[in-house]
Amino acid sequence: MNNTKVQKWLIDNVSFLIFLALFLVSSAIASEFASFANLNNLLMQVSVLGIVAIGQTIVMIAKGFDLSVGVVVSLAGIVTVYLQPYGLVVAIVAGILVGVVVGMINGFAITKLNINPLIATLGSMTFVGGITLGVTNQNPVSGTDMNFLMLSGNILNWVPLPFLFLMGFLFLTDRFLKNYRLGRDIFAIGGNSDAAEYSGIKTDRVRFLSYVLCSTLAAIGGILLASLLNTGSPIAGNGMELATIAAVVLGGTKLTGGAGSVWGTFWGISILNILSNLLDLTGVMSYYQTGLQGLVLILVVIITTISAKRQKNKGGMLRTFQ
């Protein structure tokens, strides 16, 4: 009895366990890994991608996709940097609004026009990407207000502020998804949209909201990244769409919706980050790094798949509501 409980815990937290193993191995291999400077660097590295991935998790639990997060990161950063002369508050609010607007466009296209999420968000990726290249003429823009850099500074000389943001968003989103009706509706829609509709959930409205939340979080990530680089760059968010989706799936969220957790996603992001940091510290050539990352991705998904199968065979419940 107790034994199954332990087993269930292990299986539920397989991404955390993989993270832990990787962390220990890294400390053993690279002497600089566990140094203060490197850990600080790592916390900063997971922050931006982590915040963006939270949004992606929400959308994916509702059986959606958001390929536009990368360009939202770029555009929000650019807008915030551009508008600094009007005051930081105005600039940051405008940056967040970028996310809200793109999210609304995505949500509208997907729920009202019934466009496939993959296509709708690929479309907005194209469209917003065009805007970022257009407004900047492909050139990055530098910030002018030095106070803006404080957003990505260290608190008490130790923890980067963006990491605190990440923790805050993780905590809030987790509570929201588990304890609030709207959050549970997101799971219900992802599990079975038709059934959710019949049981009285306004599925369109909930799905719309999931996209707005996702883009808004991406915009916040973009603003923090712009602060870190003191630059709004049209390529800042490049590749984040696939990286966040990979992290979300590594963290145990199903591509078919209805199950998942934001903490899982956090461990997913951490696995990807530590791996890349370790390979850099040990000086593995980038070609092999690319290959090794691919291999680890495949191995991790095999491990999670097999462990999930085990759990099912043991007669475990489907994890629709966590």
Partner: peptide, 23 residues
């Protein structure tokens, strides 16, 4: 057969093949 998620499997394969091409 293994029933692993195709998105992740082929994303991993993409990195592997890219690395092979570069090497």
């Amino acid at each position: 057969r293994v029933k692993a998620n195709s998105f992740i499997v082929t994303l991993g394969m993409m990195s592997l093949l890219q690395a092979a091409a570069l090497v």
